[in-house]
């Protein structure tokens, strides 16, 4: 599903240049649930942003679902993001003047789906994350866990190939974190490919594979026995 080879990325800051990714090789097959681990500043988000086509690598190759991701202009990148990817962020990134339902429907709006169908499909995803009753509520009327559920429903709405989550439990207490991870595991059980960036060991243990990043290179990449989140709730 994802294949990257010899990926390099550095940030220029004035005269200095910060080499963040120093040759990353790694691939993800369909249906995997992978966590990318590493201490703060190790380049996890940078890697995820490149995978998410929000940022571009300096060199190396990236193939997503057989499509080479290269020299994208903004328009094409937007189309690919909409078609292939669903994003889940640490700070939720919901639009605060829109209801939960309208937030979930936004990717479908950019897909050109008509309003009636948008609402119907979005409602189904809200139901899936257990928030059907909250459909008309604005984000500021929801708890952190509920907001992240809305964000997950939104990420799923466009039926993407891959979900990309950056510290998705970073703003949540541990009980809520485990509930969210339970939802992630259920979604993965249905066959969806998911990449989770985290620096928390317990969250990483709830995925099926842990990739360890340090100083811009992968130092460890192993499959683990998945801990079911539901047992910790």
């Amino acid at each position: 599903m994802i294949e990257i080879k010899d990926l390099h990325k550095s940030y220029k800051m004035g005269k200095n240049s910060l080499h963040v990714l120093k040759g990353i090789n790694f691939s993800v097959k369909e249906g995997e649930l992978v966590s990318i681990m590493g201490s703060s500043g190790s380049g996890k988000s940078t890697l995820l942003n490149i995978l998410g086509m929000l940022d571009e690598a300096d060199s190396g190759s990236y193939t997503l679902d057989g499509v080479p991701i290269k020299n994208l202009n903004e328009k094409l990148a937007a189309q690919y993001r909409n078609k292939f990817l669903g994003f889940i962020f640490q700070s939720f990134n919901l639009i605060n003047y829109k209801s939960a339902l309208d937030n979930v429907a936004l990717p479908l709006y950019y897909q050109g789906v008509n309003r009636a169908e948008r609402m119907e499909r979005s409602m189904a995803y809200l139901e899936k994350v257990g928030l059907a009753k909250w459909a008309s509520h604005k984000p500021n009327e929801l708890s952190g866990g509920q907001k992240q559920r809305v964000a997950i429903a939104r990420a799923l709405a466009s039926d993407p190939k891959v979900l990309l989550a950056d510290e998705l439990t970073g703003a949540l207490d541990s009980k809520t974190s485990y509930e969210i991870m339970d939802l992630i595991q259920q979604i993965n059980d249905e066959g969806r490919t998911i990449l989770v960036v985290t620096h928390e060991e317990d969250i990483a243990q709830m995925t099926k594979r842990i990739v360890n990043l340090k100083d811009g290179v992968i130092i460890d990449d192993k499959y683990v026995n998945q801990v079911r989140a539901i047992q910790n709730v």
Partner: peptide, 16 residues
Amino acid sequence: TKEIGIRKALGAEPLS
């Protein structure tokens, strides 16, 4: 800015 960033991440083209 943030909203526009979100919209773009979700697939809004610059022209839109």
